[in-house]
Design a protein around this nucleic acid. Structure first.
Lengths: 206, 206
DNA sequence: TGTACATCAGTGAACGCGCGTTCACTGATGTAC
DNA sequence: TGTACATCAGTGAACGCGCGTTCACTGATGTAC
């Protein structure tokens, strides 16, 4: 009993990855509206029929992209932050986080857009998230945890609220990423580093 | 010379509004993927052919929705804030802004999603924005302007950066709105008012 | 006021196209003896 | 090692469906005398 599915051959697994790569690339580059099976297959260098050997249907393919591609390494990097508590300075680490967050959220925008364009898919994705306890809120929690650790080390004011600080810092980066994508690059004349420094200075000023 | 187009009859204008209402309602409720001409016409209680009497094509209709429906009264309310500088307390006004911002951004999410799902449309929308100088960044500017006014009144610390404070406050609300829409209502157990209070307390603590 | 015509807002039915999906098939790889 | 068969990954061509769009038309409203 248990796993019915026989282990896929190495070649088949590679093909699967090529399809997922192609799907997420097309979505990011050309948008959900242009992410047709034809276009995805063309990008992957495969026939459309092959997509259906690896995924039940288009919805299954998209859900898999959301499940396997979205988490990304950003949350992981934030989670690793707690181990760095006490090193460098809080200020420097937060600036690093902010500088990383903006490009990360910019990459994310088309995927998020695709999710909101298909509420049925979004609903199924939510089910999956709540079943596993995963989700983007983990980024906030991870950063808050790091800030809590710094607080216990006496390197962050007692009265500061780690979770609120995290929401402010990442929220500003999130919005900035969307504004840049939405209004165009010209908004990015203020450099990313400068933006990060201003945010952190304001948050840590006492 | 100038306006070639004859003034539309009152009835025609009403129909136009019904179409725009229907289009934005369908997009918000059922997502871009389900926002077909058939569905929009059905919602408006009109035939599909009528859509084409009022808009050149579907793209024209969507662009018009983005142009005429997105700005909303939220930016206006923020712009009106400057006149209220010196009244109430800075703390109370900012809490009010934050409490307003979350539901506003939640409403906005499906539209923003639709924009990112069609990069060609987004590009044309951007052109329009940069031609008129409008855009969502105005919300940030409006809030920053208010904070600057309070600063001149001596009700906000000299060293505070109005624009950075605005980016932090609205950014946190923006991200929270997306998280709620993306992960589901359960995130909203912390009440909106409580969330707003925490943000403002952290930003104004000295 | 009544009559004849023009304009206008809106429609039902049809159109072609491109989409997601499936089918019968092929050639390569693995297995048995 | 060679031969016969089974399995597997992948394909070209076709399918039906629903989409955006257009057409020839209708009935209501406005205008002229």
């Amino acid at each position: 009993m248990g796993t019915e599915r026989a282990a896929a051959s190495p070649r088949a697994q590679l093909t699967r990855i090529r399809i997922l790569d192609a799907a997420s690339a097309v979505m990011s580059d050309r948008g959900l509206a242009n992410a047709t099976t034809k276009e995805i297959a063309r990008t992957a260098g495969l026939s459309e029929a092959t997509l259906y050997k690896h995924f039940q249907d288009k919805e299954d393919l998209f859900l898999t992209v959301m499940r396997e591609r979205l988490p990304s390494e950003f949350v992981g990097r934030l989670a690793g932050l707690t181990d760095r508590a006490g090193t460098s300075t809080v200020r420097a680490l937060l600036q690093e986080v902010a500088a990383d967050a903006v490009p990360f959220y910019r990459d994310l925008a088309p995927m998020l857009g695709a999710a909101f364009a298909q509420p049925d898919l979004l609903a199924r994705h939510q089910q999956m998230l709540s079943a596993t306890g995963l989700g983007p809120h983990l980024a906030l929690s991870a950063l808050a945890e790091y800030l809590g650790a710094e607080q216990r080390l006496g390197r962050l004011a007692e009265r500061a609220q780690p979770h609120t600080l995290a929401a402010l810092l990442l929220g500003a980066c999130f919005q900035r990423a969307f504004l840049i994508e939405f209004e165009g690059e010209h908004l990015a004349d203020r450099s990313a580093a400068e933006f990060a420094r201003d945010l952190v200075d304001t948050l840590l000023s006492e």
